[in-house]
């Protein structure tokens, strides 16, 4: 379970995340939607202790991320796709992460196999395609076999087979009672996969509802665009 309480982040005078209160429950896939620059990545960075909230809190099973003693065993995260050193091999990238949390080397080979990178494990990541980087990032998230997953646009750069694979992976995770928070811009994919939908715009919460209740039989894209449009009108109306 991930709990955001009045979570706020300002940079200079600009409010990027504005008073978000959301609970992400286990046992379902929660899609995290919003336009570019809405504050999704910043929210995820605050959940993972990379950015400090200006106000409010983000906790995982009641603990701040920083206080988790062996964090990779609690939370698996994918933030930016290209987050390995180009001169290091895929396996060595996962190896140093595993070592930092006391995870066995055998687990590194297991996850490489699981994400389909076993054949290129000893290749340096500088030559990897976006899809391969994405798979490596997902492998890193799976290392500690965590009960919580936080993934920022995991579908980016994946081919059709890859998209299907990640869909099955996330469904499997949720079915095992784990917590899955995943941001995405691929709304038709979200409509096929998600159980719960959280929408933010300009850092503010626009919707937090079960997918079926939110769309009511309509395409998610239509509902989503309507939500975003209303929020823009509301804000500009308020300014005027």
């Amino acid at each position: 379970m991930i709990e955001l309480i009045n979570l706020t982040k300002t940079y200079g005078g600009r409010t990027v995340v504005d008073d978000l209160t959301v609970t992400v429950h286990p046992g379902r896939i929660t899609a995290f939607l919003g336009p570019n620059g809405a504050g999704k990545s910043t929210t995820m960075r605050m959940i993972l202790g990379l950015a400090a909230p200006t106000r409010g809190s983000a906790t995982i099973h009641g603990h701040a991320y920083r206080d988790l003693p062996v964090p990779l065993r609690h939370v698996g995260a994918l933030l930016e796709a290209r987050s390995s050193h180009p001169g290091r091999t895929a396996r060595n990238h996962l190896l140093f992460l595993a070592r930092s949390n006391g995870i066995a080397t055998s687990r590194v080979d297991e996850v490489l196999d699981e994400v389909g990178l076993a054949a290129v494990a000893h290749r340096r990541t500088g030559g990897f395609s976006l899809g391969m980087h994405q798979r490596l990032g997902i492998a890193a998230a799976l290392l500690g076999d965590p009960p919580v997953l936080v993934l920022d646009e995991p579908g980016n750069g994946l081919d059709a087979e890859g998209i299907r694979w990640i869909r099955d992976l996330l469904r499997g995770f949720a079915a095992q009672g784990r917590t899955v928070l995943v941001s995405s811009h691929l709304l038709s994919e979200v409509q096929r996969t998600a159980d719960q939908v959280v929408v933010i715009g300009a850092g503010r919460l626009l919707a937090d509802a079960a997918l079926s209740a939110l769309v009511g039989g309509r395409p998610l894209e239509e509902v989503y665009l309507q939500l975003i449009e209303q929020s823009i009108e509301y804000h500009s109306g308020r300014l005027a």
């Binding site: 202790g49 990379l50 990779l72 939370v75 930016e80 987050s83 992460l97 930092s100």
Partner: peptide, 18 residues
């Protein structure tokens, strides 16, 4: 500084948040 140039700072701090 190689962690920033090589973009591994994120994963490193996620693994060791202290």
């Amino acid at each position: 500084a190689g962690e920033h140039t090589g973009a591994t700072m994120g994963p490193t701090i996620v693994a060791v948040p202290r």
